[in-house]
């Protein structure tokens, strides 16, 4: 992968498969396409006839399917230099409603799956990503304006993070639960259980590593998620949906709603069938975070606030610890008498 950046200079073969040109490439293409015009795809140095890329229509990911927004709305996604990358669906309140319904429907099966099973599925996500590193590196590079190696490093870290969280599936219960030595003839056991449907505002700045860092800990324990990806850089997330759809992640376990964070989040924060809210993606906007937390109080959602100092940026490559796992777990304590 070290030669990744060179690829754009070579044949369009590999890059063409990624469906979406990397932003830098588009910007530097000989055509010098004007800002906000479609990237023209790659020009082969050997063949004068230009092949026109097949562009991908990005869609939402709800209940294991890839619908357009019911509102019919899209919004323009550009690279860091303002070049058009795609029209992303702009999810509506009703899309959010549908996503919550799908997430709720999936919760029983997913939370009831064995921890081993969930762990294997998250690991499978990592496997699938590994095979598509180049595509995601290109997308991340375009989305975040990163140089190739840095984008690749983000993707690698994200894949490793999926692996890391995959391994937690059958360990967090042991770490966070246990027997309690009550003063009486009772068996007493505390076990963490998933909270339910978690609305996740994924980080705005870290479109892929940040996403993995907030999504994996939510679902590995058996929660289902409705994710609002980075508003300005939703494409890596929407492409991740394709990986999730082919990684044995049951439909509805992860739902992705690109769009205006404020709009979608407001619906999710107020939704009475959402159990928890991760405000990572509202970290730079204290007012929004407060509004959403206030709305979440109506049914006492568990709210994971943005990290302190999130407005100045969060280092998503840091050791994540278990706090994001624990934030969306409920401790259930079961008593039973001990007697013959």
């Amino acid at each position: 992968m070290s030669d990744e950046p060179k690829k754009t200079a070579k044949s369009g073969g590999t890059a063409g498969k990624t469906g979406r040109p990397a932003g830098k490439t588009a910007a530097k293409s000989p055509a010098k396409s004007p800002a906000k015009s479609p990237a023209k795809g790659r020009t082969s140095v050997r063949t004068p006839a230009r092949r026109i890329d097949v562009l991908k229509t990005y869609k939402l990911f709800v209940g294991g399917k890839f619908p357009r927004s019911e509102s019919g709305r899209v919004y323009e996604v550009t690279d860091s230099e303002g070049n058009w990358l795609a029209n992303a669906p702009q999810a509506s309140r009703k899309d959010a409603r549908d996503a919550v319904t799908a997430a709720r429907k999936a919760f029983g099966g997913w939370s009831g799956a064995t921890a081993y099973n969930r762990g294997q599925i998250l690991y499978r996500v990592a496997e699938m990503l590994e095979g598509r590193r180049e595509q995601f590196a290109a997308e991340v590079a375009a989305a975040e304006g990163l140089p190739g190696p840095a984008a690749t490093a983000q993707v690698d870290a994200a894949i490793d993070r999926w692996v890391w969280y995959a391994g937690w599936s059958d360990k967090i219960v042991q770490v966070a639960g246990g027997a309690n030595p009550v003063a009486g003839p009772f068996f007493n056991l505390s076990t963490p259980e998933p909270t339910g449907v978690v609305a996740v505002l994924a980080p705005q700045e870290s479109s892929f590593l940040g996403l993995a860092s907030v999504l994996a800990p939510v679902i590995v324990t058996g929660n289902t998620a409705v994710v609002v990806p980075s508003e300005k850089a939703p494409l890596p997330a929407l492409s991740l949906a394709e990986v999730l759809a082919t990684s044995d992640v049951p439909g509805g376990v992860v739902n992705l709603l690109s769009g205006r964070t404020r709009e979608v989040a407001a619906t999710l924060a107020a939704h009475q069938d959402v159990n928890a809210l991760d405000l990572a993606g509202a970290g730079a906007d204290g007012e929004l975070a407060k509004e959403l937390e206030t709305a979440a109080a109506e049914n006492l959602k568990r709210v994971l606030r943005p990290d302190e100092g999130a407005a100045e940026g969060v280092d998503w490559s840091a050791d994540p610890g278990t706090s994001r796992l624990l934030a969306f777990l409920e401790t259930k304590t079961v008593w039973h008498p001990i007697g013959v």
Binding site: N188, L300, K332
Partner: peptide, 28 residues
């Protein structure tokens, strides 16, 4: 539910976490 009593009820102990799911609150 945060506390499930099987074949007993309303038992409490300082070593045993207590608290709710959903609108019964959060934290233990």
């Amino acid at each position: 539910a945060g506390v499930v009593w099987a074949n007993t009820f309303n038992k409490f102990d300082p070593t045993s976490p207590f608290g709710g799911y959903k609108e019964s609150g959060f934290g233990r």
